[in-house]
Amino acid sequence: MTVQTYHAPRTREEAVALLAADPAARVLSGGTDLIVQMRAGRAAPSSIVDIKNISAMQAVLGNDGRYTIGAAMPCTGLLRDEGLCKAWPGVVEAANLIGSVQVRNRATMGGNLCNASPAADSVPALIAAGATVLVVGPAGMREVPVEDIPVSPGKTSLAAGEFVAEIRLPVRPPRSADAYLRSIPRTEMDIAVVGAGVSLTLDEAGTCTAARVALGAVAPTAIVVPEAGAALVGTKLDDAALDAMAAAVRAACRPIDDKRGTAEYRTAMAGVLAKRTALIAAARARGEA
């Protein structure tokens, strides 16, 4: 490895200054992508800015129903916050599908997002949840929807010197829930062939009043499919509504063919998986699961 310097800043400002001063610097969170890429020669940062020692970077804060998750919070750490697990079971389950226990004890949602893999598991769940991130950089802070961070495989919209400091989850109306499912050839330790995240709200009669559907591994980035969410709103998630949602999902897919699955298979599976995910989210919203 060619890396010359390791920095462990204590404040966001210090981290921004270090990143802005060295265009070839890279942020280190859990390192489960970055260190693998360095070893394989796919990343050659001149310096590393480890953000884990910055205050609140590994904390979950609940405030008036909103959740703020430090960008360097390991995925397994999310499981320790009961309120978060209750409010956002889909986000927590998606983050805890990543890799093995060893990997999840280090891997973070911030790293999953900024690595910008189209198959990143926590990203569709965060997009379905309507999550935003707080980006800090030389020009100050900005709040950005999660779906606007990845722009293509391995590329983000972050400018020089910027990094993600927080992941923010909005207030949950009553009878709301989310879920995430992925399809992989094995049961653990594999990359999603398709991932589907659904977050929805029901009224007292069980009619869906809001829904967001997001997909992973079927396009160059994780995507939100507004037409799929719209197909559920106003329905009781009957078969016709689920079929309409699945059709909207399939129409939004632009997948590649690779050894894990053909484009045709991914597209068909995306519809199937989105339906299953919506049914789990609905059952949770009704308090049945």
């Binding site: 390791y6 390192g31 489960t32 260190i35 590393i48 390991p74 060893q102 990997v103 280090r106």
Partner: peptide, 9 residues
């Protein structure tokens, strides 16, 4: 916490 020491600096 158990980790892969190959992926820790």
């Amino acid at each position: 916490q158990m980790v892969c020491s190959c992926l820790v600096l």
